[in-house]
Design a protein around this nucleic acid. Structure first.
Lengths: 115, 115
DNA sequence: TTCATATTTCCAGTAATATGAAAATGTGAA
DNA sequence: TTCACATTTTCATATTACTGGAAATATGAA
């Protein structure tokens, strides 16, 4: 991942409403929500939501799936992980013995809902 | 962590130069670099660097340690982890069986450099 | 003190982003 | 077709952020 691409992704997330949108979609999982549902849940006018969603899309953080008149948006989990990797990459690689920092939290493995 | 605080942290990282600065400090570890060293390594004029470092500081992503005339800046690893946690938190918690997404990469445990 | 260096603050010009009403587009139902 | 609805685009305005020269501040050396 390039520094400039990561900065674009971070810019996309660096906004209260867009961050709320993204986290809502992360919680939701692959199914996603229709644009109007997101707008309703977060109290955002449609044009404003569209503007923000486009930012997230441009950064590759969400995917879109058309379903009749609805467009369902969902989080791009691979992109999310790449971004997290980029931020934490090579943690302490230039440090000496003194670096005892845990560079990532304990992994949350895939959810295998009761089998 | 509050949504607004995370957005502030993401805003701080959402800039090419600041992202370079932060990643340099993440690699460097707790010792950090003096402001002038960062400016030199990344080719940033001192006032511009100071402006950007202040942004990172305001977001709590870096710490400062005065050493004579030098000020050493280092990454705040706890803040970094909190931010990553926030982004990935409750991943797929609203999803059904279909959610087989790995929500975080394999953990990189603390570096214990050959004991 | 006086000087040199490290860093920050001030400032003004420039650029980028956010907002939402109104209009346009796309899609399926009647 | 015609209609109703979902979503996006356009557009004008408002707000915020970026940049780096010049000046100010802080610290230690001579």
């Amino acid at each position: 991942m390039k520094n400039s691409d990561a900065a674009i992704a971070l810019s996309a997330l660096a906004h209260d409403k867009r961050l709320e949108i993204f986290r809502l979609l992360v919680k939701r999982g692959p199914e996603g929500y229709a644009a109007g549902v997101i707008a309703g849940k977060l109290g955002i006018p449609a044009p404003t939501l569209s503007f923000h969603i486009k930012e997230l899309d441009r950064a590759g953080l969400v995917g879109a799936r058309q379903d009749g008149r609805f467009i369902h948006y969902s989080a791009n989990f691979v992109a999310m992980r790449k971004l997290v990797d980029f931020l934490t990459d090579h943690c302490c690689s230039l440090a000496d013995e003194s670096c005892t920092t845990d560079c990532l939290p304990a992994a949350q493995p895939a959810r295998r809902k009761r089998a």
